[in-house]
Nucleic acid binder design. Structure first.
Lengths: 108, 108
DNA sequence: TATATTTGCAACCAATTAGTTGCGAAATTA
DNA sequence: TAATTTCGCAACTAATTGGTTGCAAATATA
């Protein structure tokens, strides 16, 4: 079963889990309290997030504390890098000019 | 049919489409040449990307040129903002210390 | 006008997904 | 030791997804 980080953050529940765990490590039960679904549903989401290493485990007795792994999340940011120039002000203005030029050309 | 940008970038083909179109506006046929799937499969991906406004259309005769919409992509970057502090060097080191402290405490 | 090209849309199919319920293992508590 | 709690795993279901084929509309070309 192949998982990647982009698929992992595609689900809104999983994004919410990441936000919660980034602030504070939590157990599956503690997490489940924040959502309307069952513990098992949350547990499955945790499994997906753990499989793609966005979360790490830390067993403490019968509890398992899940921690946020920033370095994995950084990979998404890294992929975004290539698009950033498009919305930085200077380049954005240049893009607009080029798009307009293209549009005019297109309409000929 | 609800679509959001996170679901849109979950598919590797759609991510590749975004990379291509960010460099240069293209027609569906031109795009399909870059992939091993059928034109219709690519067309469906384009539809998803257009529905969530990551692409914009520009009709030119019987051709439709698809353009990249940076401002929509920026929304993903905006969501990432809340995690960035976790991997900035200074905070990252602090995080590591806290995680280690927690781990030690956990193992007691 | 007849033909070819570009494209979106609808119907269908196989695979995947998010969710549920039930179970058993491990650790804590009485 | 017995009961409780925390949790992952397996089996099942319903919905969604990515892909296919076929078709019709619109534009361009002969």
């Amino acid at each position: 079963m192949k998982r990647d980080i982009f698929q992992a953050i595609a689900d809104p529940t999983r994004r919410a889990i990441l936000v919660l765990i980034a602030t504070q490590a939590m157990t599956p039960n503690a997490l489940a309290d924040h959502f309307d679904t069952t513990r098992q549903a949350v547990s499955k989401h945790i499994k997906v997030l753990t499989e793609c290493q966005l979360l790490t485990q830390n067993k403490v007795g019968r509890e398992i504390h899940y921690h946020f792994n920033p370095s994995k999340m950084k990979e998404i940011d890294h992929w975004m890098e290539q698009f950033k120039k498009h919305w930085e002000d200077r380049f954005n203005q240049l893009d607009q000019i080029l798009i307009n030029l293209n549009s005019n050309k297109d309409e000929k």
